[in-house]
């Protein structure tokens, strides 16, 4: 049988999925690309696990796997948020008439 922490995590998983579906259904197709790059950056949260793996002195193999994970995850985080920011800055409303 599953122990209590696993049940708790499973509960969080299911609830988060529902929240995700609710929230993301409201994103218009206009912003689907920034949604993908931005959510991609969020999946870089795995950097949290990578830091623990690399920094906890669990032997050289774990340290180096963790190091590689930090690099990839940070690429994801920084690259993802920055490129999303660049894209979103381009989405502008129509200028008021006579402003051009």
């Amino acid at each position: 049988m599953l122990e209590a922490p696993a049940i708790a995590a499973l509960t969080i998983l299911v609830l988060a999925l529902f929240v995700g579906i609710e929230v993301i259904s409201k994103v218009p197709p206009l912003l689907h690309t920034p949604l993908m790059s931005g959510s991609n950056a969020i999946s870089g949260i795995t950097v949290v696990g990578a830091i623990l793996a690399a920094g906890s002195d669990h032997g050289p193999l774990a340290t180096w796997l963790g190091f590689a994970a930090i690099v990839f995850a940070m690429l994801n985080v920084v690259g993802g948020f920055l490129v999303t920011n660049r894209m979103l800055a381009m989405f502008k409303p129509k200028k008021p008439k006579g402003d051009a």
């Binding site: 793996a53 032997g59 193999l61 796997l65 995850a73």
Partner: peptide, 18 residues
């Protein structure tokens, strides 16, 4: 970026295995 996110998670799991 999708690929990097995926491999980072796999590497963390790999580190936990080792």
């Amino acid at each position: 970026l999708n690929g990097f996110g995926g491999v980072a998670s796999a590497l963390v799991a790999g580190a936990e295995v080792t």
